[in-house]
Design a protein around this nucleic acid. Structure first.
Lengths: 392, 392
DNA sequence: GTTATTTATTCCTCATTGCGGATTAATTCA
DNA sequence: TGAATTAATCCGCAATGAGGAATAAATAAC
């Protein structure tokens, strides 16, 4: 019971920057008395800090000035990571989610056996922690975001394009290696939380995000919470069926709009093939499109159309106020985006006209990793500080 | 706080038939003391009744026998209704959801202005209540289930095939007419709750239901709760896009699998046209299919394929343990079902193989109406009995 | 027929919690 | 310097849930 209110207050402090107790009381609809008690306990546990400076109400600040409260950055440290086929990106953040250090390793891991991949990830985490001037013991939780179908509760990776093997208990593996609690989460969910906490969905409690990368992922925010499929499975949009093609063959979204589908259209020659192998295929493709390469433009237009239709279908199902699009495929530029927008406008049902806003976001990989860190922090929030809290 | 536990206990009693306090305590994880207090209050309010007979633990029943508790049927009465284009179905149920009386009016209302439709619904409610030997004052809540896009919170009907007009505040209209609180809900949601409470999803807390009627609707149960789109909008699957057809025309699900799409394939002649007009098109179609009418069989096969693909897509998104299919289109029989099953099997992603079970249900219209009644009861559960309870 | 045993339920007590109202704190304005 | 104003805390109350003792109601044993 108290735990619920504590969480509520802590989350309010996280979301609304430095904030006074009175305002917390208004937002949480708890009495000032209760807020006072809870914040006292949070201060006692070192999770939040008072700031006597910034009382910037009205100009004429009569009465006793407010004491602003904010998260104590030093209350915890977490590591977030984005694991993609061609690169590993790590960040270490403090309790507020502010990035302390980042590290990008441009390494292909998708052809490696699982043990090698785990080795590389372990190295990355350790190095990034070191870069932040910390040791692994200072880190409370690690969260790894990777594409594919992931069971959040267990950290079980059903299938992922970055692993050669299927059905890997990656969370257990990494927890053992790092001797630190490690969460494995869908990268799409990570970036969704990133946008909810720091990005383009801070103002919303319902939202849908679609990630267009090597695979196509989905994140749904519903009532300020990540909507995880019934069994805690992540959503893999690439498997969606767009219709029947020739001879009763199914047309799946991944075959139209997956990274390999787009890049594969062009017979990869020399430098382009090299770029793809290094995981910079999309950037190269975008350059070729600017140079009016018709094959690639055609592929981009087809992909945009497929994605546009898919978004319309998802809007039909969820009717969210905003859909955020992220991922490397956005780099394809106008031919892709225009075709996407057109297909969407055509396909979204008239009855939902004006309900949903489309937003494109070209954040860097760091932001994904920061999202993974947010997942880790989110987990920390719910753990009982009173007993197993961080060093005070 | 207490309210939450009260609700929890009440719901446990509803779900697990006559049940002893000890068992409630186990299931809700509340102390026996607390359960005792809450049940005492529930007994006091007349919401539940003790039953001294049925203590059927083991044969050798040592110790003090359990006192079983169950819902008091007389604690409340509600009316549930299914409003379809060609018929109105009403049920009156008691607090347990048991049907006290039913009434089916085979009337077309979809060509009528809203005032006429409201008149007919009002008459039906009144007559059905009378049939149950009650008066409208004995009825606590009315819930009307109808197809289309409905805002649950407000009872606002954005668009529905049974109304000529769009954007009707039907809940307000009927509340005024009946002088009884009236809820308007998507019929798909109603039948979903019906299956959760009484039907083929009693054992599940996550589930997806697809209703194939004049329109195609969706109900999603998530954590024992109806998942209502972000804005409380109901889902209208008919607007889903299945792909591009000729000349950039969109192919929507409703154009493949809607009732009118299937029946319209056959040039309606004489008796068939008459049957359609009377809302018995599907039954007639099923007869024609049995007589090997190739045009209709073709339509049914196409429809089954479209629905199968759609289900696969929904399974891709939600990964539910069970999908229940309901609605008049099931009457099309094997050609439809087989094609549906085949398309589904083909399209469901291999990674989700075996996760989801497909169940067909051919319940009668009463069951839909009973679902609407369940929605009404659900609403009643959450209302503060202590202040505005039913007659004791 | 009486007593021990077993199991379900209720009574009593206590700690926690959240709230309303009074009080104290810290500042501006006259 | 004192009044006014706003923020935060202190005090006491009522509600609630849990633990343990006590009671109730049955069977089994003697």
């Amino acid at each position: 019971m108290r735990a619920i209110n504590r969480l509520n207050v802590l989350d309010t402090i996280r979301r609304h920057g430095p904030i006074a107790r009175v305002e917390i009381s208004q937002r949480t609809e708890l009495s000032t008395t209760t807020v006072s008690a809870i914040t006292a306990s949070l201060l006692d546990d070192g999770l939040i800090l008072p700031r006597h400076e910034g009382d910037i109400r009205n100009e004429a600040a009569r009465g006793r000035p407010r004491v602003m409260l904010e998260l104590n950055p030093d209350a915890a440290r977490v590591v977030g990571a984005k694991i993609a086929a061609s690169r590993l990106v790590f960040v270490v953040t403090d309790f507020r989610g502010d990035v302390l250090s980042k590290l990008t390793l441009p390494i292909r891991i998708d052809r490696q056996p699982i043990a090698v991949a785990a080795d590389l990830v372990e190295d990355g985490v350790r190095r990034c922690v070191l870069d932040a001037g910390l040791s692994l013991e200072d880190v409370d939780t690690v969260c790894l975001g990777l594409p594919g179908v992931i069971e959040h509760r267990t950290g079980y990776v059903r299938s992922s394009p970055v692993f050669r093997d299927a059905n890997v208990d990656f969370a257990a593996e990494m927890t053992a290696r790092l001797a630190t609690p490690t969460i494995v989460e869908s990268d799409a969910h990570a970036i969704t939380l990133a946008h909810h906490w720091f990005g383009k969905a801070r103002d919303l409690e319902d939202m849908v995000l679609i990630s267009l990368e090597q695979t196509i992922g989905l994140g749904v925010l519903h009532g300020n919470q990540l909507f995880r499929g019934a069994g805690g499975l992540s959503h893999n949009l690439g498997d969606l069926v767009l219709g029947m093609g020739q001879q009763g063959r199914l047309v799946r979204l991944s075959s139209q709009a997956g990274e390999s589908a787009i890049l594969g259209e062009k017979q990869a020659d020399g430098r382009f093939a090299e770029a793809i192998r290094l995981g910079r295929g999309m950037n190269h493709a975008s350059a070729l499109i600017k140079a009016e390469d018709n094959v690639l433009i055609g592929a981009a237009v087809r992909a945009g159309e497929a994605v546009g239709l898919t978004i319309a279908n998802i809007v039909t199902l969820f009717a969210p106020p905003r859909v955020i699009l992220v991922g490397s495929s956005l780099a394809l530029g106008e031919p892709f985006l225009e075709s996407l927008r057109n297909a969407y406008a055509l396909a979204v049902p008239p009855s939902l006209n004006g309900v949903t806003e489309l937003v494109f976001d070209d954040s860097t990989d760091d932001f994904w990793a920061q999202g993974a860190a947010a997942v880790a922090l989110h987990e920390l929030y719910e753990s009982p500080w009173s007993t197993t809290g961080p060093a005070l």
